[in-house]
Amino acid sequence: MGRYVIRRLLQMIPVFVGATFLIFLMVYALGDPVTALFGDRGPDPATAAALRAEFNLDKPVWQQYLLYMGKIFTGDFGTAFNGEPVTDLMGRAFPISARLMLVAIVFEILLGITLGVITGLRRGRSLDTSVLVLTLVVIAIPTFVLGTTLQYFLGVEFGWIDPAVSPEGRFRELIVPGLILSLVSLAYVTRLTRTSVAENVRADYVRTAVAKGLPRRRVTVRHLLRNSLIPVVTYLGADIGNLMAGAIVTERIFNIQGVGYQLFQGILRQNSPTVVGFVVVLVLIFLLANLLVDLLYAVLDPRIRYA
C-alpha cells in the first residue's frame, strides 16, 4: 500500500507539469496581458516594457514557466495586476467555494443515496419510475436554466432567499446555490445507488443474511448497503472535480465570490497570474481527490489490494 501511494504520487508529477504547462501556454502565450490591462487606449511603451520585465513577459515561454513554477514552490503565486497577491484572492475564494461544495455534497449524500436506496428496493414501482423520470429531467436541463429559474422564483417572486450571495458567502445563503450545484450529480448518485442496490438485493449473500434470521434492517444496512455504496462513494470522490467545474456557472448565477467567480473575472480581464494560480491549485486538488478515491476503494472493498 505504501509503495502504491508513492508510485501514484510520482505519477502525479508529469500530469501536474503537463496540465499546468498547457494552462500556462494558453493564458500567457495566446494573449498579451499587458495590452489587455490597458484596454482600448493602448499602453505607453515605457510602462508596458517595465511591466513586461516585472512579470518576466519579455523572456521565452519555457523560461517564464520555469520561473513561475519555481516561485510557486516557495508559496509565491505572484500578484494580480491590481497589485493584490494572488494568495490573498485564494484565501478569500477557496473557503467560500469549499462551503458551497460541502453543501452540494451533503445534498448528494442525504437526498441522492436515500432516493437511490428507496427506489432500488422498490424497482419497477410507481415511485421508482417517477424518480427515474425526474432524474432524467434534471440531467437534461442545463444548470444555468434551473439555477436562474429557481433564483427568480425563490429570490425575486417569493423573496424566500437573497437572489445574490454576500461576499462573505455564509452557509445559510449557500443552501439554494449548493442544491443547484449538486442537482446533476445528485441525479447521477440517485441512479447509481438505485442500480447498485437493485443489483445487490438479489445477491446470494443477501439471501444468506436473510436465511441467518437477521432482522430486515440489519440485512439492508449491514449487508446490502455496505456493498451497494462502494461505487457510490467512489463516484462522490471523483465528483469533486465535476463540482469544481460546475461551480463556475453556479457562482456566476448567484454572484458567489468563490473560486469560479475569481476564475471567471480573471479570464475576462486576462488577469493571467490569477487564472494560472487558481488552475494550478485546482489541478492539485483534482489529482489528490483522485488518489484519495482509489485508496478509499481499497478500504471499502477488501478484495482490492494495491501492491
Binding site: 446470494d204 449473500y205 443474511a209 441467518k212 434470521g213 455496505r226
Partner: peptide, 24 residues
C-alpha cells in the same frame, strides 16, 4: 419466523464465495 431461521433451521448454500458477504 425470522427467529426460527438460522436458529432452529439453518441453510448451507451451494457457492460459498457468493453466499458469504465479500466485504465482511
Amino acid at each position: 419466523r425470522r427467529r426460527v431461521r438460522g436458529d432452529r433451521i439453518a441453510m448451507i448454500f451451494q457457492d460459498a464465495l457468493s453466499a458469504l458477504n465479500p466485504v465482511l
